[in-house]
Simulated assay, not measured.
Amino acid sequence: MRTTRWAIPVALLCLGGLSACSSAPEAADAPEPTKASVRPSSAGKPSQRPSLRPPGAHPPVAYKPSWPDRTTRTKAGYLVDTCVPESLRDKATTLTTSDGVHLSALELGDGPDGVLLDHEQGYNICSFLDIGRKLAARGYRVVIPEYRNHGASEHVADNEHIERDARAGLAELKRLGAKRVFLGGASCGGSTAAVVGAEGELPVVGLLMMSSPARCGGVDAVAAARKIDAPSLFVVSPGDMLGAVEKQVREVYAASAATQKRLVIDQSGYHGTDMIRRGPRGAALERDVIAFVVAAYDKAR
């Protein structure tokens, strides 16, 4: 079985429940820019740096990032993961969840057609960055939140309620003017994306779940899939956690209400977006994912 250093531990922890999920850095990010220490202007108070964001944007907030040695501050005062290229750091913002947790997020593209991309536990905001950039270039408005206890997002006491992080990303898409949404996520990120999409905040045109378990703690992806009838794509490797992940993905797939749904079995042995980022068929799988998003929106028009 082919695995990466983090693929098996993350799957083992996250399938056991959200509170147990690892928040260790991903093993194979792009080379980091020069590390910078983060010095909040004053504890709990907004930064005094002038914001370069458009009117109505969220102001920068001072908080303790989860991975401070991999966090930097943008010119506008937002905290962002150093995996994000400097050319994209002006797309960073800070979201605040319903329970008051501050999340680093990227906002790419524009227009009424939204895409929410939620990363795996133990990974970071750059897991979906390449796909997000390519979708934005095609005319979609993309939001990629970095979940609590990961990267440049706030460090908190536990890892419960990550569905609130997905919910904050979806609310941001709506605030920015998205009229409908394609939901995408990997591992528990896919599970939470489905759960918040099923709540009906925005019309759902499609769903992508990569290595996403049926349940993450109190998050029930099976119940959510029964409520989403939009085209749905499920991707999993049979070698991930010795088949345990595939079993759960098949459970969600079987429960899906979508009349157009696909189950893709990737033989790489990798977990989540590592199937794209490290697998031998990664480039082809990425093209398939992007084509699926485009087709879902074409069908919705």
Rank of each mutant, 00 (worst) to 15 (best):
K64Y: 14
G272A: 11
W67N: 12
M210F: 07
V61E: 00
V156A: 11
V84D: 07
S127C: 09
K299V: 15
V38F: 05
V252G: 04
A300T: 12
R2P: 13
P238F: 08
K75C: 14
S104D: 02
A295H: 01
L176A: 12
L176W: 02
A105G: 00
A105V: 06
D29M: 08
P59N: 04
A300I: 04
R215F: 11
S268Q: 10
L106Y: 04
V80T: 08
R73F: 04
I125E: 06
R226P: 06
A137P: 05
E163N: 10
V181C: 00
V196G: 10
G169Y: 03
Y140F: 09
N159C: 11
V196L: 06
R175Y: 08
L263E: 01
P25C: 08
A221M: 10
G114A: 07
R89L: 03
T273P: 03
I131Q: 08
H271S: 03
A296Q: 02
L173H: 08
D81N: 15
G77S: 02
G169P: 00
Y140D: 13
L233Y: 06
G189W: 00
K75Y: 11
A194K: 11
T273W: 04
A225E: 06
D29C: 12
G218F: 05
L285M: 05
F292M: 13
V204Y: 01
S232V: 11
G190C: 03
F182Y: 10
R138G: 10
W67S: 06
P40F: 06
R164H: 15
C216G: 13
D158M: 07
P25D: 03
S41F: 06
A198F: 02
D266W: 07
K299L: 15
A225N: 08
T273F: 05
P145F: 00
R175G: 04
H271V: 11
G197E: 08
F128V: 01
G243I: 11
V115L: 12
P112I: 01
D288W: 04
C188L: 13
A168E: 06
K174N: 11
A43R: 14
V115P: 00
D110A: 14
A295T: 10
E199I: 01
G122C: 07
E26W: 00
G279F: 04
C126E: 10
Y123H: 15
V252A: 01
V236Y: 00
R73T: 09
D81M: 12
T71I: 08
M275T: 12
Y297I: 07
L95D: 00
F292I: 14
P33S: 15
A221R: 11
V84Q: 10
E107T: 14
V249Q: 00
C216Y: 14
K261L: 13
V10Y: 08
N149F: 01
V156N: 08
G282C: 06
T3H: 12
G217P: 04
L173V: 04
G269N: 02
A57G: 11
L15K: 14
A296N: 11
